Simulated assay, not measured.
Amino acid sequence: MIYYMILAVSYIACLMPGRLADAVGRSIALVLWPFLPKKRKELAVKQIIDCLGVTETEAKHIAKESTLRFGSMLLEVLRFPYINRHMEDFVTIEGKEHMAAGLAAGRGGIIATGHTGNWELLGGALSHAGFPIVGVAQRQKEAAADKFINRYRTMIGMHITYKDDVREMFQMMKQGWAIGLLADQDANRKDGIVLNFFGHATNCVTGPASLARSQNVPMVPIFITKQKDGRHRVICHPPIEVAHTKDKKKDIADALQQYQNILEAHIRAYPTEWFWLHDRWKSMRNRS
């Protein structure tokens, strides 16, 4: 029942003009904003000040805007059936040659991205541009939500696999597919690697570089940002080659540090589009 209710809301969203959908999404987020836990807001503000060196007033603005944008992002996901038919009107891609170079050997590749911009739209945009994309999904607790989001991800061109199905990822890469991984959140103490991020020692996930190294494929940093006119811009960076020396940990760390530097620069350029509410340094505090 819930699944069909979501589809009904999606149908209505598809009938809306883009700017109206954005306004509705932002209005929903504004209604929910006061109910967000105070400690979570304070955490976001503190992280923004520590990372960007801005005033508290500016940090509060960035924290709020980075949260409110989830409303319009939600409406965009609901409008995927419409966007899928008009992708070229919604997204432009810069640096497609970098993505092409990363896949040129025919062994597949790794896309390293983050929770910035509408990352749900990113895979679909690349798929429409002719790149074979595998989206790695986190299984949702609510079955209806899981069914809906994966149906819509598939609709816009991606092949979807769950994050625990590493065997399928290897198989898809051998067939030339690019595996899209979110690589900007806190890792657990056992699996993470400590690198520099915004001048702080930060525990980072190793998955993108580990997979790239094990399969001898490049890691391509790619991000998406929303412009003032409502269109999105996908930015593809040159591939990062992961070394394959006797020091596996250093190979992975060196490649991931390159990615962290690119991610940091992107966040500095578009600070209101990153997910600041995430407790990025939680595991580092727990180490002390």
Score class of each variant (00 low, 15 high):
248 K>C: 03
146 D>S: 02
40 R>S: 09
100 A>C: 00
95 G>S: 14
212 A>G: 14
38 K>R: 09
285 R>F: 08
175 Q>C: 05
200 H>T: 02
49 I>S: 02
229 D>K: 11
212 A>K: 09
61 H>F: 08
132 P>S: 03
208 P>A: 12
251 D>R: 10
244 H>K: 13
43 L>F: 14
109 G>Q: 09
119 W>R: 02
64 K>W: 07
16 M>D: 11
252 I>D: 02
279 D>P: 00
256 L>A: 06
32 L>Y: 09
59 A>P: 09
275 F>G: 01
214 S>D: 12
40 R>V: 14
126 L>F: 01
10 S>E: 02
46 K>D: 13
156 I>V: 09
288 S>K: 13
112 A>D: 10
218 P>K: 04
276 W>N: 03
240 I>K: 08
269 A>W: 07
277 L>Q: 10
150 N>R: 04
144 A>E: 12
184 D>H: 04
20 L>Q: 13
212 A>H: 09
261 N>H: 06
87 M>P: 00
89 D>P: 01
97 E>C: 05
241 E>C: 12
239 P>I: 00
56 E>Q: 15
226 K>N: 11
223 F>L: 12
66 S>T: 14
93 I>V: 13
83 I>W: 02
104 A>M: 05
221 P>K: 14
73 M>S: 11
244 H>A: 13
13 A>H: 06
232 H>T: 07
179 I>M: 10
180 G>N: 10
189 R>L: 09
193 I>N: 07
212 A>Q: 05
155 M>S: 02
128 H>I: 03
163 K>I: 06
23 A>S: 15
247 D>T: 11
187 A>Q: 06
201 A>W: 07
19 R>W: 14
5 M>H: 03
57 T>I: 11
236 C>A: 13
